[in-house]
Simulated scan of single mutants.
Amino acid sequence: MAGLRFGGSMIPKSLSFHDAVIAGIEREGTSYALHVEDVAVDDGEDVINGTLVLDDVRRVVIDGNAAAELVMSGDDGEILELEERPGPVLRVVVVWTKYESHDETQNLYLIECQSVRWEADE
């Protein structure tokens, strides 16, 4: 299956993370699990939920500033862009929303990691 390859792993090409929502982030050691909802499959013919697993995260840069860790910056985060860069580095643009105040903040993340993999919920 063709797809985006990250450090030997793969995210299927049939998935689109544009407008998907980060509902939670968990950290275990140097790895992170991003719980993502509303991922489009086959040009939007289906929508699934799952987990984007970032193994051995070495560095997180948010809007050009180094960050100690990857955390939620709102109640949820809408993914506008998600792409791989050499390194491998995951480039993600997220709009975070705070429900109570209705505030929205856009951030650009550059995440350097060993590998990235998608695990669909069953």
Rank of each mutant, 00 (worst) to 15 (best):
M1G: 11
G8Y: 12
S9A: 06
S9T: 02
S9M: 06
I11K: 01
H18S: 08
H18P: 14
D19K: 12
A20R: 05
I22H: 00
I22G: 00
G24I: 14
I25Q: 02
R27K: 15
G29T: 04
S31R: 09
Y32L: 01
D38P: 00
V41D: 11
V41N: 06
D42K: 06
E45D: 08
E45N: 11
D46F: 15
D46I: 07
L52V: 08
L54H: 10
D55V: 01
D55C: 03
D56K: 09
D63G: 02
D63S: 04
D63A: 01
N65Q: 11
M72E: 00
G74P: 15
D75E: 08
G77A: 11
G77E: 03
E78I: 10
E78F: 14
I79T: 05
L80D: 15
E84A: 05
P88L: 00
P88G: 00
P88S: 00
L90G: 04
R91C: 02
V92W: 02
V95M: 14
K98G: 00
Y99A: 02
H102W: 12
E104L: 00
E104G: 04
L110N: 10
L110T: 03
L110A: 06
E112F: 09
Q114F: 01
R117I: 01
W118Q: 03
E119R: 14
A120S: 13
